[in-house]
Design a protein around this nucleic acid. Structure first.
Lengths: 164, 164
DNA sequence: TTAGGATATTAATTCGTCAAGATACAAAAA
DNA sequence: TTTTTGTATCTTGACGAATTAATATCCTAA
């Protein structure tokens, strides 16, 4: 990789520091919000996935969120104990298990999601819509760049739902 | 807090998703780099602090990085066992303990920091300098906004080294 | 059939946090 | 003064959360 001159490097270090602080303030705030619903950021995202895209095999969830295979059982167990999801066998392949939202899980998410979305908007209210569009464009470019450079084995991934 | 219309809300959700994915790609990449030096993101940042700003009392470090008081002992222990830092009493207050870089810690950091800085530049190379400056401005604004709203008890913090 | 891989769980372990405790300082009361 | 009360600092030990490595079951293709 090409080396940067001292000045450019200093700019990069400044940017990474601002990013770290912003991320810590923003995601910290969102995590506290999610915590108030009795969930973790991780379990919230899993519920969100099931809510928006229906049942998923355990392994898909594990992949999507980079949760180790040994941990995903533990995580799904917790959600199952709370009554928000259930495990269902997948016909045709008895190795797989589908995770699906229960009625209770759905209505709980119906309840908390709008609140959380409002918290997100509150936290992002310090930028204008124009700035937000600019952020989306640039941050996407960076995220893509990094993921593509790494993912030398994932070329066939869903590019219509980028970075998802 | 004022509520957003559906369209604005959708923009916010888009932005937060892009931010999450970007952060996970970027910080994941940086963490893997740091991991290759046998450190965690947290311990790396502590070494960086001691390197740039000299010895710090344990409690300052604990505060700065929001590490619980029970955990900071554990973290400093690990760095001490590796020989990178040592604990020294602070004259005048026997409750406090200073954490300082050892010679070994300093030369180790001398060695790894330039490598890590290069990794940072590599990961940020997908944005132009102009875009980076724009990012710094907007992300700072968001980070400030969130921190200031929360920190109703921290008005007296160091604003010349913002969000640090 | 059999060999190899995919999927999920279990058990052991590691990691980090919390609550409680030990010590020291500082300020107010006696 | 000295005593008391409250607070700050750090560590300890018990605990829970999350990961790893090993295991059980199942599928696919040679």
């Amino acid at each position: 990789m090409t080396e940067r001159d001292a000045e450019g490097q200093a700019l990069d270090l400044r940017l990474i520091r601002v990013m770290r602080n912003m991320a810590s303030a923003l995601f910290g705030s969102l995590e506290r919000d999610i915590d108030s619903y009795g969930l973790s950021a991780e379990t919230f995202q899993i519920l969100e996935l099931l809510y928006n895209k229906g049942p998923h095999p355990i392994q898909k969830i594990s992949d999507k969120f980079s949760i180790p295979s040994g941990s995903i059982t533990y995580v799904v167990d917790k959600l199952e104990k709370k009554g928000y999801v259930e495990r269902l066998p997948i016909p045709g392949d008895r190795r797989k298990t589908n995770v699906t939202l229960t009625g209770e899980g759905r209505s709980y998410f119906d309840n908390i999601f709008p609140k959380h979305a409002q918290t997100i908007s509150d936290n992002l209210s310090f930028a204008t819509d124009e700035e937000k569009l600019e952020l989306i464009a640039v941050l996407k470019k960076i995220g893509y760049g990094i993921s593509d450079r790494q993912g030398k084995g994932n070329e066939n991934e869903n590019r219509s739902d980028p970075l998802s």
